[in-house]
Nucleic acid binder design. Structure first.
Length: 581
RNA sequence: GGCCUCGUAGCUCAGCGGAUAGAGCAGCAGCCUUCUAAGCUGUUGGUCGGAGGUUCGAUUCCUCCCGAGGUCACCA
């Protein structure tokens, strides 16, 4: 139940009956929201203003007509015209209290909407190079993508979570050669890792496994035979590492898509380029050297170019390297065509800040391969600076400081890692303070929100002790006399709960999971605030054995808050503990 | 030089084209010792980087400028 959506429908219907000539376009801009200043009422709509202009009417007159229309609505206590043409509604308490019953009825589904309309969406995130365990730099995008996927799922999209394995480039050759060295080492040779190869210890077990599987037979093979064998095994091993790191963060994917499968003479890349050529989207030409500093090895040569500028990119993009192999972007075009042909008309890619220059060409690629039918939203996650006690700290393997995802999770836990990374807009750089995250104060939002849930649970434990034998389940509390909730503090809390459904749908449509985290923080603050009032004024305590009717009504409220906290934390992938230790 | 992101209170940050721009911390003034836990209440503090534009209305959208960060054929 979403009070705001409910009224948006009613207002829209009212406008249509008042002004049959009103356009859908104008109605699309109609908003019902809580006014910034609660003194203005419970709900506010801009309806009269968005409608008046195209109809050539005075907004205040339209507002007055609209307000008059709601005089007979039993849920509306008053409807007033304000400012340039707002209509402010004051809503009957009964409707707010219906929200509490709705939470009891809908439980985990309270807030679930169908704004996605069942549309299929492909959300691609992480897509780290499989050359080692996950670096901490990948964490933000991983958490963001995973949470966005959950949020969209909860909002009625049919979501596929996808990981693109960059297993085709030269870094994989390097990885294979690095592994061969570890294999020799496992066979007893003493090795020296030249610069340019991967020195990480995580390849040691892979070398040992190769020694076990092949004995010394790889040594007798020409490198052209040995490398592919090694490649397959080390890629599997690296993906296993990455999946384990992701699992530590409670992140899972539905599809792992290998770039390698796109290559080959009949592969997707070849087919896609042939198709693009037929469409006239490819030509042979020369590029201007980049302005400013020219790269040292700039070579002005004729190359195979994709007409990215036709689709909004800044320059046309090369598809074939000087050695004749495909560029990374050529593979990416084919990959996104593959997504489109799999039936995805909506795609989301989560990329790191260093890929911001890649956005336009990706959008161009999607437009081109879908002939304008599909859209892609590229979300850039900015850098995270790791801090300790307000000081940035360097991450270097040698000094033993934290570098990998596993290290961070081991240090502060998945809950804190996830919540903190989501407690900031994705497109702004952030600091991640290890000391703060472990603090149990209001400064630490993870603790603050989880504590609100634990405190709600604690209230129920007290109630069970005070009122033995009474069914205190949320479902049973639907019949509580919630009209007994009459103080401003109580109704404020009810109104906060009522905000949840619109918060979720707005966040899902905007692809902004951080709004969920901020909402939960606000809800927690409202709940803690109310609890604190009970400390000063005993009559405001939730559990009051002398007045069981009121107690049940308040428990319905506490239960609703707890349920919304659970629903929100579930989207964020953060646990909602019953008690904090 | 081009492109991308950011610029909001002393600090860290919210802000969905709407009304007098919000919260936490810090500061100031009081109060308090727990329905297991973060003490609470009040209060001070703003040229929303700057200038134009679109709009009934701009912190929000557009253009230019300033500042910070990132990025810049063929790497992935």
């Amino acid at each position: 139940m979403d009070v705001f959506a409910l009224f948006a429908t009613r207002v829209s219907a009212a406008l249509k009956s008042l002004y049959p000539e009103v356009t859908e376009d104008a109605l699309g801009r109609l908003v019902v929201e809580p006014p910034r200043d609660p003194a203005h009422g419970d709900l506010s709509t801009n309806a009269a203003m968005v409608v008046a202009k195209p109809l050539g009417r005075n907004p205040r007159e339209a507002a007055a007509a609209l307000a008059g229309h709601f005089a007979s609505d039993k849920d509306v206590i008053s409807a007033e015209v304000a400012g340039p043409g707002f209509v402010n509604f004051r809503i009957a308490d009964a409707l707010w209290l219906d929200v509490l019953r709705a939470v009891g009825q809908e439980g985990a589904d309270f807030g679930r909407t169908n704004v996605g309309g069942g549309e299929r969406v492909n959300v691609e995130y992480v897509s780290a190079n499989p050359t080692g365990p996950m670096h901490v730099g990948h964490t933000r995008g991983a958490v963001f993508g995973d949470t966005l996927a959950s949020l969209m799922e909860y909002s009625g999209y049919d979501v596929t979570r996808e990981f693109y394995i960059n297993d085709a480039g030269s870094q994989i050759e390097t990885l294979a050669r690095s592994t061969l060295l570890r294999y020799r080492e496992a066979l007893g040779e003493s090795i020296d890792i030249p610069s340019g190869l991967y020195p990480g210890d995580y390849l040691v077990p892979v070398g040992q496994a190769l020694a076990k599987e092949f004995g010394d037979t790889l040594l007798g093979m020409p490198e052209s035979e040995a490398v592919p064998l090694v490649k397959d095994r080390v890629l599997d091993a690296m993906m296993a590492l990455i999946k384990a790191d992701l699992a530590d963060l409670r992140i899972h994917h539905d599809v792992f898509f290998s770039e390698r499968t796109l290559h080959g003479p009949d592969g997707d890349i070849a087919q896609t380029l042939a198709w693009l050529r037929e469409q006239g989207m490819i030509y042979e030409g020369r590029l201007e050297p980049p302005k400013g500093k020219t790269p040292d090895e700039w070579e002005n040569r004729e190359q195979t170019l994709f007409r990215a500028t036709d689709y909004g990119d800044d320059i046309d993009r090369p598809l074939v390297k000087s050695d004749g192999s495909y560029t990374y972007f050529a593979a990416d075009i084919a990959y996104h065509r593959n997504k489109y042909l799999r039936g995805f008309k909506h795609m989301v890619n989560v990329l790191g800040a260093d890929h911001s220059g890649y956005v336009k060409r990706l959008q161009a690629a999607v437009k081109a391969v879908s002939q304008g039918e599909a859209d892609i939203d590229v979300r850039i996650c900015q850098l995270v600076r790791l801090m300790k006690n307000g000081e940035p700290f360097k991450m270097s393997k040698r000094s033993g400081d934290l570098v990998t995802v596993a290290d961070v999770v081991a240090e502060v836990g998945a809950d804190a890692t996830r919540f903190m990374l989501l407690f900031r807009r994705n497109d702004a750089a952030m600091d991640f303070d290890f000391a703060l995250v472990k603090e149990q104060t209001r400064d630490n939002p993870v603790f603050y929100v989880q504590y609100a849930h634990a405190r709600a649970c604690s209230v129920f434990r007290v109630a069970e002790r005070e009122m033995p034998g009474v069914d205190l389940s949320l479902l049973a509390l639907r019949s509580a006399a919630v009209e007994r909730l009459s103080t401003e503090a109580e109704l404020d809390l009810v109104r906060s709960v009522a905000q949840w459904p619109r918060t979720v749908s707005a966040a899902a449509l905007a692809h902004e999971p951080h709004r969920i985290a901020f909402y939960l923080y606000d809800l927690a603050a409202a709940f803690h605030g109310f609890w604190a009032k009970g400390k000063e004024d005993v009559s405001l305590r939730f559990v009051n054995a002398a007045d069981p009717t009121l107690t049940l009504a308040r428990l319905a409220l506490v239960g609703a808050v707890r349920q919304v906290l659970v629903n929100g934390l579930t989207i964020l992938g953060v646990l909602a503990p019953d008690e904090l230790s």
